[in-house]
């Protein structure tokens, strides 16, 4: 027969403790609003979308691919009938000021007699950016296309642990991409 060690805790508390431990150890919850449109949808869509004119859909797709190459992305997939291009790149996410700060923390920690001071290993190391560009021909007017760019990135630290998962939201980045696309489209059309 199994005998339990005597305990001064009431049985109810033990049950509660076990339930909490069980839940914390094994269960995860799905956020309620995981697929709910955020209130800022229209604003974000406007930031990510521009209208372009081009003789054919292929012109705008070729110009877009060239822009992605200009920005040092690799093309992962293209689905031409749907006008979808997915591209990605991994680049440096090192920040000197962050590294200096963390090194200072490590020095303080070591000076205080601490062991296992490895704040520096949490420094940002590289970022993986994925981008989707969609080209939607206008149903009403031929030669008009809506181009939409969406981006997100993962930042890893020196130990390859994920530090940040985020959508890229800076409007200036989108502006720059659309400026580049405008130039690329001009070159593409005028070279024909």
């Amino acid at each position: 027969m199994v005998r339990f060690a005597p305990t001064s805790l009431p049985a109810g508390s033990i049950l509660l403790l076990a339930a909490v431990m069980g839940a914390a150890g094994c269960a995860t919850s799905i956020p309620e609003d995981a697929l709910r449109l955020p209130e800022s949808t229209l604003e974000i869509r406007a930031m990510q979308t521009r209208m372009f004119e081009a003789p054919a859909e292929s012109d705008i797709l070729i110009a877009t691919i060239a822009v992605l190459q200009d920005m040092e992305f690799n093309i992962d997939r293209i689905e031409k009938p749907l006008g979808v291009i997915t591209a990605s790149k991994v680049s440096d996410a090192d920040s000197k000021s962050e590294k200096t700060g963390l090194l200072f923390l490590d020095i303080l920690c070591a000076a205080g007699g601490g062991s296992g001071c490895d704040a520096s290993s949490t420094a940002q190391d590289e970022q993986a950016i994925t981008m989707t560009i969609t080209v939607l021909p206008s149903l009403a007017r031929s030669g008009e296309f809506t181009v939409r760019v969406t981006m997100q990135r993962v930042i890893y630290d020196k130990m390859d642990r994920i530090r940040v998962l985020e959508r890229i939201d800076q409007p200036t980045i989108y502006e720059d991409i659309f400026d580049n696309l405008r130039k690329s489209l001009f070159l593409q059309v005028s070279s024909q």
Partner: peptide, 20 residues
């Protein structure tokens, strides 16, 4: 399909793969 892709973009997704 284009609407599905637009919805996914609205919800903050990037497209890994699409096959029309």
């Amino acid at each position: 399909m284009r609407s599905v892709i637009a919805t996914l973009q609205d919800l903050g997704f990037t497209i890994d793969q699409a096959d029309s």
